[in-house]
């Protein structure tokens, strides 16, 4: 199949909904974070929501780190 269109690939082949179902918003250490459950059953940090700029420099809240 050859596509010739101004639309982006994701508009034609939308991402499956289930990719996002294991993503959830939780409070971790008093900060709101988005986590994703990985294949090992661990929660991996996806996004940190904080107004404190120093939190973004904190090792603990690096996106991709495993929550303990």
């Amino acid at each position: 199949m050859i596509l010739y269109t101004p639309l982006s690939e994701s508009d034609i082949f939308p991402t499956a909904e289930n990719v996002y179902t294991n993503r959830q918003c939780v409070t971790y250490d008093g900060r709101t974070v988005f986590v994703e459950k990985n294949s090992n059953g661990e929660y991996q940090l996806v996004q940190l929501l904080s107004t404190d700029p120093q939190d973004y420099l904190n090792d603990k809240y690096i996106p991709g780190s495993i929550l303990s």
Binding site: Q54, L57, N58, D59, I62, P63, G64, S65, I66
Partner: peptide, 14 residues
């Protein structure tokens, strides 16, 4: 893990 997550080992503390 850190390298996988952010591509670096340490972030500066302030």
């Amino acid at each position: 893990q850190k390298i996988q997550a952010l591509g670096q080992t340490n972030v500066p503390q302030a």
